[in-house]
Design a binder for these strands. Structure first.
Lengths: 262, 262
DNA sequence: TTCCAATGGTACAAGGCCATACCTTTAAAG
DNA sequence: CTTTAAAGGTATGGCCTTGTACCATTGGAA
């Protein structure tokens, strides 16, 4: 006998709990591609910007290098850049020492508008908000732990200390960018490129939300204390403490977001 | 599969430590697509099989449904199925109640050949072996913790208990498949579809390696004790204990692999 | 026996994406 | 002022992917 179709539970009125049986393939049968190449490319470039890896005023790598590293044709890359140019995100200049320069975001009242813009973007995310926050937590706690376990020393430790110091000395304007870089460095020091790449993607989304929230000096100060505890734990090779520090740190962010959503 | 050119440091004597500064974009500038649509589709279908979601003898969902869920055209899907058919992985039958049926793997001496085949596949993975194992650990520990935190009850708890029982009663033949289903269920109960999807992908790779190793009854028994501890911790809502149980469980697998590689 | 519905099999035209080669612009270097 | 290297801009032909429609096969239901 050949069975296949959704095996139906005679499940009583317990509600959605039978969903577990409903779709055994849910984890695998997702879209092979999340849009056409061009759309995915736009997202990638936006990631570079939202993560602050290419600060305002700086320029992206040359088209040829970008296309090469993203494994797409230059034609397709240029279509993506064109869109970002039209959207006022990039300014493209020709000639030697030209390139695609990151423009300052429009002085939108995003951060000033309270939860207005935030709610709009959260709505856009839909069900994926919880997924995003949970996935971020899994990655970030795991990265902190792995990083502490391998206990960076030498140049790697110096790099972490440097990033910590820079983040601590940051102005309100720069803080998000430097905070992101510190976290991303930890993800990279986890030793798993996959962890780093997934974290980069999810953090770009989170930054998009956080940019709708005004950053207050007390938050910043509190956050920096947690950074210090985190880095100290990592450099001491104390994985559980690193994990705990990161957990507390993330709880702060989550609370901030939830506060503005209610 | 398309490989990434490894960026070579002209690195002085200090070794790879300067890598941190070398490529600030490493986490973002990865290939937008890991091959053409057709190749990725082959991988997806193989995932269904390697994870045991479609057991030997059963058939895949109809082409139209698969194409729809993977968001690809039926033409492309059929190209992928054709390859798997030619490879002896699938048998395709026409007419009503036809479909693509999963064939038993060739009676290759994979498991019997000791570390022979395993070493070949590990070589194929190259640098990504460590990445795979670390990423798996991050996902699996995170999933166990999240799952315990939300403490499944009712039908969800029943489902976990059922999977645990089935896994415990499994023959050597079925064990890998049922073990995978239990772990995947926990990943899904984490509440984060991203965690589940990433776990599915990474576990398919891991299974590919584990299938090269003969499974011994003692390993199996030990493993099942850990499963019981894990599920008990989850159903008790004891996140740290769930995490610890999972950690011990994973250590066993890792040791097994390393043992056969040395 | 006849019909029907579910499933795989095939064809074709339109659009997406790519590799490649070449052109244009720019500013520093000589 | 001229040269030159590095960057963006453009054009062409071909393969990949898709959407749509229709054909062929099969086994159960009527």
């Amino acid at each position: 006998m050949i069975e296949n179709g959704a095996s139906n539970e005679a499940g009583a009125g317990t509600g959605g709990e039978a969903d577990l049986h409903a779709d055994p393939y849910a984890a695998v049968l997702r879209p092979v591609r999340s849009g056409n190449t061009f759309e995915e490319t736009v997202e990638k470039v936006l990631q570079l910007i939202r993560l602050g890896l290419v600060p305002v005023g700086d320029r992206l790598p040359p088209e040829r290098e970008l296309a090469d590293r993203l494994q797409i044709s230059r034609v397709t890359l240029r279509e993506a850049l064109k869109v970002l140019q039209d959207a006022g995100v990039l300014e493209v200049r020709r000639g030697r020492y030209g390139g695609a320069f990151v423009l300052a975001p429009a002085p939108s009242p995003a951060a000033a508008s309270g939860g207005e813009e935030l709610r709009r973007r959260v709505e856009e995310l839909g069900d994926r908000l919880e997924d995003t926050l949970l996935f971020r937590q899994v990655l970030e706690l795991g990265a902190a732990e792995l990083c502490a376990e391998r206990t960076p020393g030498g140049a790697e430790a110096d790099r972490l200390r440097q990033l910590l110091a820079e983040t601590g000395a940051a102005t309100l304007e720069e803080y998000r960018r430097l905070d992101t870089r510190l976290h991303l460095a930890i993800a990279e020091l986890s030793g798993s490129p996959s962890v780093a790449a997934q974290y980069a993607a999810v953090r770009a989304t989170v930054n998009d939300l956080l940019d709708c929230i005004p950053l207050l000096p007390p938050n910043l100060q509190h956050s920096q204390l947690q950074h210090e505890e985190l880095v100290d734990a990592i450099l001491s090779g104390d994985a559980p403490r690193a994990r705990a520090a990161m957990h507390e740190h993330l709880a702060g962010t989550a609370a901030l977001l939830r506060g503005f959503l209610s």
